[in-house]
Amino acid sequence: MSTADENALRDDICRFARSLFERGLTPGSSGNISVRLEDGGWLVTPTNASLGHLDPARLSRLDASGTLLSGDKPTKEIPLHAALYETRGSARAVVHLHSTHAVALTLLPEIDPRSALPPLTPYYLMRAGQTALVPYYRPGDPAVADAIKGLAGRYSSVLLSNHGPVVAGESLEAAVFATEELEETAKLYLLTRNVNPRYLSRAQVDDLVTTFKCEIADPDALDRQCRAPDCPTHGFGFLGGIAREPAED
Rank of each mutant, 00 (worst) to 15 (best):
S2V: 02
A4W: 04
D5L: 11
D5N: 07
E6C: 01
E6H: 02
L9A: 02
R10L: 08
R10P: 09
C14Q: 01
E22K: 12
G28D: 02
I33R: 09
R36G: 03
L37R: 12
D39C: 09
G40M: 09
T45N: 10
P46S: 03
L51G: 13
L62N: 08
L62F: 02
A64Q: 04
L68N: 00
L68A: 05
L69V: 04
L69S: 03
S70P: 00
S70I: 03
G71L: 12
K73N: 15
A83M: 03
Y85V: 04
E86Y: 07
G89W: 01
L97G: 12
H98I: 05
S99F: 02
S99W: 01
L105I: 05
T106Q: 02
L107Q: 13
P113K: 06
S115T: 11
T121W: 04
M126S: 15
R127Q: 06
G129L: 12
A132Q: 03
P139L: 12
G140C: 12
A145Y: 12
A145L: 14
K149Q: 14
K149M: 15
L151D: 10
A152N: 13
A152F: 08
L160F: 13
S161G: 03
A168F: 03
G169H: 08
S171C: 09
S171H: 12
E173N: 08
E173T: 14
V176A: 04
F177T: 11
F177W: 10
T179A: 08
E180I: 15
E180V: 15
T185Q: 06
T185C: 09
T185S: 15
R193D: 02
V195I: 13
N196V: 05
Y199I: 04
Y199S: 00
A203E: 15
A203S: 11
Q204Y: 04
D206V: 07
D206M: 06
V209I: 11
K213S: 14
C214W: 05
E215R: 14
A217M: 10
D220A: 15
A221V: 08
P229F: 00
P229L: 01
D230T: 00
H234S: 04
F236A: 05
G237S: 11
G237W: 05
L239T: 10
E245G: 02
E248G: 13
D249R: 15
